[in-house]
């Protein structure tokens, strides 16, 4: 048995990354950042507001949370709709009660189908970013470039039409990109993307068409990962988020540098009756902590960019 000799050749074995999207940047090399009001920790809430067609297309892949049973999967179709009709409104109320702003990544199908939801998000002062067309609008490596460009532009335009302004930010379904995605997002006028999970702080990514800010929304700090994947309770989630906050506060004090605590929410996961009390209590404690600055993705980028020289 022998392997192709190329398997033992390493053409990208050199200092730095094995791609050109962003440079290596170990934490100790970073210039410290400060958040408005001298707050140590920016808390960034991101809600995925999604519409799942009952006819999954599976191209290039089936999104997490999508249909499971043979057609027609009433169970999952309606349980996801529950998230939009009921769960999301619980989240909006919880945000209002705690007095915090969030970022909502919205499928453009939500805007087209339920424009009142968009109005309710905007009137509460939350930020809307683009999140593909619907949950059949997945992106992955190998996808045809023209098709991907059309998907991004369609999501942007249909959302803008209802929201009144073009979204500045983008998050891919399942944070899944192709090698072309960052460049296509720059070409479509996006300021930042929320797919990469390799950092605690925003950083600048470079494409052939220009730069785009990468705003990390750690997938580990999400109700999908903690509750749907790892089968943990909302009480445990709350404990973990508060442990993270305590750590980041201490680190911020030690290094005199701002930190970010992201938390990604899914209406049909967190917005269930038996999880909401624990979630609201957590949100109340986070909002009541003097160390926190609740920032939308756009506010975070706008604060970070001049400090980073980006």
């Amino acid at each position: 048995m022998t392997l192709d000799p190329a398997y033992l050749e390493y053409p990208k074995r050199r200092e730095g990354m094995d791609h050109g999207l962003y440079p290596a940047a170990p934490m100790p090399s970073r210039r410290p950042v400060a958040w408005p009001g001298g707050k140590p920790v920016a808390v960034t809430l991101l809600v995925n507001l999604e519409w799942f067609p009952i006819t999954p297309s599976d191209t290039p892949f089936r999104a997490p949370g999508h249909m499971v049973t043979p057609y027609p999967d009433y169970r999952h179709y309606t349980a996801r709709e529950y998230g939009t009709r009921v769960g999301f409104y619980r989240l909006l109320d919880a945000f209002a009660k705690a007095g915090v702003k969030a970022t909502v990544a919205v499928n453009s199908a939500i805007a087209e189908r339920y424009p009142s939801v968009i109005a309710d998000i905007l009137s509460a002062g939350h930020e809307i970013i683009a999140h593909s067309t619907d949950m059949n609008g997945t992106i992955a490596g190998g996808m045809d470039e023209a098709e991907e460009r059309a998907l991004i532009v369609e999501a942007r335009d249909r959302l803008a039409e209802v929201a009144g302004t073009a979204p500045r930010g983008w998050q891919s379904i399942a944070r899944s990109q192709s090698f072309n995605t960052p460049r296509l997002l720059v070409e479509a006028g996006f300021d930042y993307m929320c797919d990469w999970v390799n950092d605690d702080l925003p950083y600048l990514a470079t494409t052939e068409a220009g730069t785009i800010v990468s705003v990390p929304f750690n997938h580990e700090l999400s109700d999908r990962q903690m509750i749907a994947v790892q089968q943990q309770s909302m009480d445990s989630v709350a404990q973990q988020i508060e442990d993270a906050l305590a750590w980041l506060k201490a680190e911020s004090a030690q290094y005199g540098a701002g930190r970010v605590l992201p938390f990604t929410l899914t209406p049909y996961i967190t917005g269930l009756p038996y999880r909401m009390d624990a979630f609201e209590a957590l949100l109340g404690r986070l909002a009541g902590d003097e160390a926190t600055w609740f920032a939308t993705a756009g506010e975070l980028v706008d604060s970070w960019r001049p400090q980073a020289g980006g």
Binding site: H19, P60, F61, A140, G141, G142, S172, A174, R175, S176, Q177, S178, F179, D195, W196, V197, N198, H219
Partner: peptide, 9 residues
């Protein structure tokens, strides 16, 4: 997943 597997990488 197909490369780039953005989340795993």
């Amino acid at each position: 997943r197909p490369h780039p597997d953005v989340v795993s990488y």
